[in-house]
């Protein structure tokens, strides 16, 4: 009897998981909207985040996202931020239903920090990517009702010394991208744009310009994606993840890069 008691402690490898803690102690707090069945009509329109992208460059990974959230054919938000810091060496970009996406990002942040504090060291980048895949799979019932969450996860792999990008599908399928990826309603347009301009080992300034141009192209072709808003001064949010950690590209720098691209387009288009 007593044998089994202490052996159970060894089997409980999920000790360091915040999600498992929630499941055990307060399951009502786990984000899940699985009350209905897939045959039921979709939920009424709710805010959706649109285009996010990530690309590898010389120092690591650059992530960027437009600032608009849409609700059906309406603009729900003009200055939402879709790229979150997951921990010191990784970020998560959210696309899909805004509510569940932001909740998942928050839960994921807590999960990583919880693990780090309990275990005394952080998860590997691979471990983080897998954990996120499991959380997306948890959301599958809600996804069947239209509340799709498809983030991009990117980070700097300290062991390998490189930036890495992971994309997901709604079933929690996890795929690693070697160069770049874009997700969301304007994702395809952004990918097309990236395909033309992306090169390996770009310096930061060029990587920034490539990313911003991809977002502009997406905004031009996709009604859900917001372009740079010169009147209100709203520009895409851009983050970098490198050897020295997660950082934000200052808005000033983004604005100048946007203006340079717009000026160049003015003569050409």
């Amino acid at each position: 009897m007593t044998d089994q008691r202490w052996q159970a402690l060894f089997g409980d490898y999920s000790n360091a998981s915040f999600v498992e803690l929630l499941r055990a102690t307060s399951p009502h707090m786990l984000p899940s909207l699985s009350a209905g069945s897939p045959e039921e009509p979709a939920l009424p329109a709710s805010p959706h985040g649109t285009t996010i992208l990530a690309l590898r460059y010389r120092d690591g990974v650059l992530m960027a996202g437009d600032r608009q959230a849409t609700e059906g054919f309406q603009v729900a938000h003009r200055n939402i931020d879709k790229i979150y810091k997951a921990d010191d060496f990784s970020g998560i970009g959210i696309a899909g239903a805004a509510g569940p996406s932001m909740e998942m990002a928050r839960l994921f942040q807590t999960e990583l920090e919880h693990y780090e504090k309990v275990e005394g060291e952080g998860l590997s980048l691979e471990g983080k990517a897998n954990r996120l895949a499991q959380m997306i799979r948890m959301n599958l019932p809600a996804a069947m009702q239209g509340l799709i969450v498809v983030p991009i996860f990117a980070g700097f792999d300290e062991k390998a010394g490189v930036g890495r990008i992971f994309k997901y599908d709604i079933t929690g399928g996890r795929y690693e991208e070697a160069e770049y990826f874009a997700q969301g309603s304007g994702g395809k347009d952004a990918r097309d744009s990236l395909k033309k301009r992306y090169r390996k080992d770009l310096p930061k300034a060029e990587a920034l310009s490539v990313a911003l141009e991809a977002l502009m192209d997406a905004a031009e072709e996709d009604i859900g994606t917001g372009g740079p808003d010169l009147v209100r001064g709203i520009f895409p949010s851009v983050k970098t993840i490198t050897r020295s950690g997660f950082g934000e590209v200052p808005e000033d720098e983004v604005r100048r890069a946007c203006e340079a691209l717009l000026a160049e387009r003015k003569g050409r288009l």
Partner: peptide, 14 residues
């Protein structure tokens, strides 16, 4: 200590 981390993270999340 672990109980404390759990207490804090649960509270901060909710």
């Amino acid at each position: 200590r672990i109980a404390g981390v759990r207490h804090a993270d649960l509270k901060g999340y909710s």
